[in-house]
Amino acid sequence: MSTVTLPRLHWGPADSSRRALLVHGLGSSAQTQWRLAEGLAERGWSATAVDLRGHGDAPRASRYRIDDIADDLLGTRPEGGASWDLVVGHSIGGAAVAQAAALDAAWARRLVLLDPAIALEKAVRDAVLAGQLANHDAATVESIAAEFPHWHPLDVEFRVRAAKGASRFALERMVLDNDDWDVRSHVARLTPPTLVLAADPARGAMFTGPLAEEVLAANPRMSAVVIEGAGHSVHRDDPEATLHHLLAFADV
């Protein structure tokens, strides 16, 4: 297993004592975290977003297991090598954040997981793969805007740019390399306080039902809030509610 150095974007005062790391999901990029980063920066946080391996400007690699993504993330530290005060992860990024934090309790002090993909069965993985490849091959500003008319224009723009900019091989392998997609054992061992901001079950939530109940019951350090009416990309579907809950949790 070889780790890669992840490119970074930054918002807010570089010398802030409160430092956050933002981790995107499959087919996205550091830039797609702009709304959360701006919200944190406006509250005085130093916010850093990374491109995951195979995405954006990050190095391409031969393997894309969640193990690899978690190891890459553990290679990120704020200036001076201290812990991140807050780490936010979406979808597969949320799964990798949880695994990283379980492997190194000093890496992060608090976690926010945005509709995390904790465990996915084959049918769901197949649907995710088909959707990712379709976006990579054919998504346009017009098609994404028509699918998500309530999204901010920048979210539409960055979604298309990220889908096109990701390695097609990486998109395939992030699903195919994870045929055992399940980080429940890591989530159960998390010690940082962890907030899950879940999508609405009626809108295709990944963190829902018996899985969510099992995960929350296994770790008393975890809590969850459902963002009513929001789909899997809660930070794009309802950025105001997502930021409200994230900031209230982060500013404790």
Rank of each mutant, 00 (worst) to 15 (best):
R161T: 14
R63P: 02
Q132K: 02
F148S: 13
E172I: 01
L154M: 15
L154E: 15
T140C: 07
R110G: 03
A218N: 07
T32S: 14
H90A: 11
A82Q: 11
T48A: 10
S17A: 11
Q33M: 15
A102L: 04
R53V: 04
R168F: 05
S28N: 11
L113D: 08
L86H: 06
R125N: 01
A96C: 02
T3G: 12
S28R: 11
L6V: 05
E240R: 13
G56E: 04
N135W: 07
E214S: 14
L247P: 07
G75T: 08
Q31H: 14
L154H: 15
A58L: 07
V124P: 00
V234Q: 13
A70W: 03
S29E: 10
G75A: 09
V226L: 06
D238T: 13
R125I: 00
V23Y: 13
P13I: 00
A212C: 02
A134M: 04
L120A: 06
A188K: 01
G39Y: 05
S29T: 10
S83N: 08
S143H: 09
R159L: 13
L216N: 07
L211V: 00
P210M: 03
T76N: 10
P153K: 11
N178K: 03
G56K: 09
G93M: 02
D85W: 00
L73K: 03
P201Y: 05
R168A: 12
A139P: 09
R168M: 04
T3Q: 14
